[in-house]
Design a protein around this nucleic acid. Structure first.
Length: 437
RNA sequence: GGAGAGGUCGCAUAGUUGGUCUAGUGCGCUGCACUCGAAAUGCAGUAUAGGGGCAACUCUAUCGAGGGUUCGAAUCCCUCCCUCUCCGCCA
């Protein structure tokens, strides 16, 4: 949720920035409801104060009939005003929640994802002396993927991952855990990229803590996270008021829901590993081959809680980590700065990393990095207690690796003419030295 | 799934025949006093959100959540959520 005070102070700016993101807002109506709401609230609170006075004076003596009559009148007036307040409050909340987070100044303005800006391209797509195969061809030839039987059992967009590919997935997990747990690597990335916070201080190199979060969450925190706005992506378990998470980020960002945390805890950096579930409704016919777009996939997700002045720097660190991980795996990629239309409602800034897929002969999204400023934490009520003040935390999330897509990328980029897959050097120690599958 | 016990201001607790609870006490924390210094002791303060005010300050709400009864609810009633214990089932 956006800061109401900011909207009061900058109504035109809010309308303009919201429309750049493709969101229709009615700021004048919202502010009108805000004024009306505050007037009613003042009246109600005055009546409540009178009621409190009356009942305090009745603590010692028995109430007289006159006093009870007076109390009844107050009660009626209050009920009347509270009835009036309810629809105003509803209107106000609805309009306020429709306002997206404000994009940062360097976010390119655009109306579709075609206006995203490629910031840089790293690595050369490999040249093959043969026609490179898709992941599904390799997977079928080598008995590493079985989508047909998965379809029989679970339907479309499911797969059995088998054999060496399974070992590859866990090798990637181990590799990421050791990289993000390594303070020296983080320090090197901070130094090389000169990542400074708003006060010009170098960012902390505190390592990430691995987390295996729950894969389901209840409606209330999910709604507060501002991530449950698309029933087309989320599975609901009707009998239990539980949703299957669509990313570890959903159970990580909600972790400190309704909490005030001591300043010493910050920054809080987590690397979560979770199976993620997506309905993919409305994507019929899109990416049906291979394992690019599944209903179920495992994902390593970074989540950072920070102070406001380090939030943007944390965002930059996350992107630096994403690039480092891609470079370590030797995968060609490009960094894309998402335009206002594509960054998403709670985002102030968003970056995608697109990996080169030889089978398709194009770059496809494998990573995203989202910076929400305090938009997400205002509803989540996740706060930091600092010297003399309590402030909202800033949240960041970013993909470390979506494992399905990453394995597809390795299969296609590291394939040989006879459909074997060479294992990237850095992963071999986690596979007992094995050099190919 | 069955039976029971609970959810109170950072932590621990008091409070459930409705009004002295705008929530007491202890611990912790902050300040002051005492002391050469410390411990101990004493005194004072110590939540969050929202409204009003330049400010000092002040008003309102919050005793798991929501609704109800009442002049008045932590306390009574209803619904829901969560935690714990025992039994059953189970990786």
């Amino acid at each position: 949720m956006i800061d109401i005070q900011f909207v009061r102070d900058n109504p035109e700016l809010v309308t303009e920035k919201a429309s750049q993101k493709g969101y229709k807002t009615d700021v004048p109506a919202m502010l009108q409801a805000d004024t009306q709401r505050r007037q009613l609230l003042t009246e109600i609170e005055n009546l409540r104060a009178q009621r409190n006075d009356l009942s305090a004076s009745l603590r010692k003596a028995k109430p007289t009939p006159e006093q009870i009559e007076q109390g009844k009148q107050l009660k009626d007036k209050l009920a009347n005003l509270e009835q009036k307040l309810m629809p105003v409050e509803e209107q106000f909340n609805r309009l306020l929640r429709a306002v997206p987070n404000m994009p940062l100044a360097d976010v390119p303005v655009g109306t579709t994802e075609d206006e995203n800006v490629v910031v840089k391209t790293v690595g050369e797509p490999a040249k093959f002396s043969f026609t490179p195969r898709h992941d599904h061809e390799i997977g079928e030839m080598r008995d590493l993927l079985d989508k047909e039987r998965a379809a029989k059992i679970s339907g479309s967009r499911f797969t059995y991952i088998k054999g060496g590919l399974v070992r590859l997935q866990f090798a990637i997990v181990q590799f990421v855990m050791s990289t993000l747990g390594n303070e020296e690597i983080l320090q090197k990335l901070i130094d090389e990229n000169n990542i400074l916070d708003e006060n010009g201080n170098k960012l902390s190199a505190k390592p990430f803590t691995p987390v295996l979060p729950p894969a389901m969450l209840r409606t209330e925190p999910y709604v507060a996270s501002a991530r449950l706005n698309a029933s087309e992506v989320t599975y609901k378990l009707e009998d239990d008021d539980l949703w299957l998470n669509a990313s570890a980020e959903h159970t990580l960002c909600t972790m400190y829901w309704n909490e005030i945390l001591p300043a010493e805890m910050f920054p809080i950096r987590y690397i979560g590993y979770s199976t993620s579930f997506r309905r993919e409704a409305g994507t019929y016919g899109k990416d049906m081959e291979g394992i690019f777009r599944m209903h179920q996939f495992d994902k390593l997700e970074m989540e950072v809680f920070s102070t406001s002045e380090t939030g943007l720097a944390e965002h930059k660190l996350l992107i630096a980590i994403q690039e480092y991980l891609m470079q370590q795996l030797g995968l060609p990629y490009r960094v894309v700065q998402k335009c206002t239309a594509d960054i998403g409602k709670p985002n102030a800034r968003g970056i995608d990393i697109d990996c080169w897929f030889p089978g398709q002969g194009k770059y496809r999204e494998t990573h995203t990095a989202d910076y929400m400023t305090d938009y997400q934490s205002r509803d989540l009520k996740t706060r930091i207690r600092r010297e003399g003040s309590v402030e909202l935390v800033h949240t960041n999330d970013a993909t470390a690796f979506a494992l399905g897509r990453t394995m597809k990328a390795i299969m296609e980029n590291y394939q040989t003419a006879d459909a074997r897959i060479v294992i990237p050097e850095v992963l071999r120690p986690y596979m007992g030295g094995q050099a190919e599958i």
